[in-house]
Simulated assay, not measured.
Amino acid sequence: MKVEFKLFGLLFVFSVVVGTIYGIFTYWDEPVGAVGLYLTGALCALIAGFLWWTGRKIDLRPDDDPMGEQADVEGDYGFFSPHSWWPLFLGASLAIVALGLAVGWWLVMLAVPFVALAAIGWVFEYFNGEHSI
């Protein structure tokens, strides 16, 4: 967890520095940008603190070892369907939902059933038919 801790620590420093620079260049007349950057820094500090606190309590992972090999990571990564078309349909349906947020709510209402159908199809893909488990 050392890499993640360092990454979020750097993001914290970056957000605070950029928030201060933003505030100086806008003469603190437009506070929303600086507040947003400071809140981003606060959330990054929160995550970095959690990762640091958790990293102290657990053993080193293989990715924390500079000499670690890919084979050191054990366990099953899960089953991923090599021929599923459902992610394509779900992505297209969610793209229509995002378009509907910009164009009009009527398009969102038309796309939501397709999102539900694609999600259900993807989840229950292997429960019937030729490839049932």
Rank of each mutant, 00 (worst) to 15 (best):
residue 45 A to N: 02
residue 72 D to M: 08
residue 19 G to Y: 06
residue 79 F to P: 07
residue 108 V to T: 08
residue 45 A to S: 03
residue 62 P to R: 03
residue 2 K to N: 13
residue 90 L to F: 13
residue 100 G to A: 09
residue 38 Y to W: 14
residue 127 F to D: 13
residue 92 A to V: 12
residue 57 K to L: 07
residue 102 A to Q: 06
residue 69 E to G: 03
residue 10 L to D: 05
residue 66 P to K: 07
residue 78 G to R: 13
residue 68 G to F: 00
residue 19 G to P: 06
residue 42 A to Q: 02
residue 130 E to I: 12
residue 37 L to D: 02
residue 105 W to N: 11
residue 97 V to F: 08
residue 118 A to C: 08
residue 29 D to Y: 03
residue 14 F to Q: 04
residue 130 E to K: 15
residue 101 L to E: 08
residue 13 V to C: 12
residue 4 E to A: 14
residue 121 G to E: 02
residue 89 F to P: 01
residue 23 G to Q: 08
residue 12 F to E: 11
residue 107 L to N: 03
residue 69 E to L: 09
residue 112 V to K: 02
residue 118 A to E: 01
residue 27 Y to I: 03
residue 74 E to F: 10
residue 90 L to Y: 08
residue 117 L to V: 07
residue 107 L to C: 06
residue 36 G to Q: 04
residue 62 P to F: 04
residue 92 A to D: 06
residue 62 P to Y: 03
residue 106 W to L: 12
residue 58 I to W: 01
residue 53 W to A: 02
residue 48 A to R: 02
residue 18 V to F: 13
residue 96 I to A: 14
residue 18 V to C: 07
residue 117 L to N: 00
residue 33 G to T: 05
residue 112 V to W: 02
residue 51 L to H: 00
residue 45 A to P: 01
residue 8 F to Q: 10
residue 84 S to P: 10
residue 74 E to R: 13
residue 56 R to F: 00
residue 52 W to Q: 00
residue 90 L to G: 11
residue 27 Y to C: 05
residue 25 F to C: 09
residue 78 G to Q: 13
residue 53 W to Q: 00
residue 85 W to M: 14
residue 7 L to P: 02
residue 91 G to R: 08
residue 111 A to S: 15
residue 79 F to E: 14
residue 69 E to T: 06
residue 55 G to T: 01
residue 71 A to D: 10
residue 11 L to Q: 08
residue 60 L to M: 04
residue 81 S to H: 15
residue 9 G to K: 09
residue 76 D to Y: 14
residue 7 L to H: 10
residue 122 W to P: 01
residue 98 A to S: 10
residue 19 G to C: 04
residue 110 L to C: 08
residue 79 F to N: 12
residue 21 I to E: 04
residue 3 V to R: 15
residue 104 G to P: 02
residue 37 L to S: 04
residue 26 T to H: 10
residue 56 R to K: 09
residue 51 L to W: 00
residue 35 V to A: 13
residue 105 W to F: 09
residue 118 A to K: 01
residue 18 V to E: 06
residue 33 G to D: 01
residue 95 A to P: 01
residue 72 D to N: 10
residue 2 K to T: 14
residue 95 A to N: 06
residue 23 G to D: 08
residue 113 P to V: 04
residue 31 P to Q: 07
residue 96 I to Q: 07
residue 19 G to W: 02
residue 60 L to G: 00
residue 108 V to R: 07
residue 78 G to T: 12
residue 33 G to E: 04
residue 88 L to Q: 11
residue 27 Y to Q: 09
residue 65 D to N: 10
residue 113 P to M: 09
residue 95 A to I: 11
residue 117 L to K: 11
residue 5 F to V: 10
residue 69 E to R: 11
residue 49 G to M: 00
residue 83 H to L: 12
residue 74 E to M: 12
residue 60 L to D: 09
residue 30 E to C: 01
residue 67 M to Q: 07
residue 106 W to N: 10
residue 61 R to Q: 05
residue 119 A to M: 14
residue 79 F to G: 10
residue 81 S to L: 13
residue 14 F to A: 15
residue 29 D to L: 11
residue 121 G to D: 05
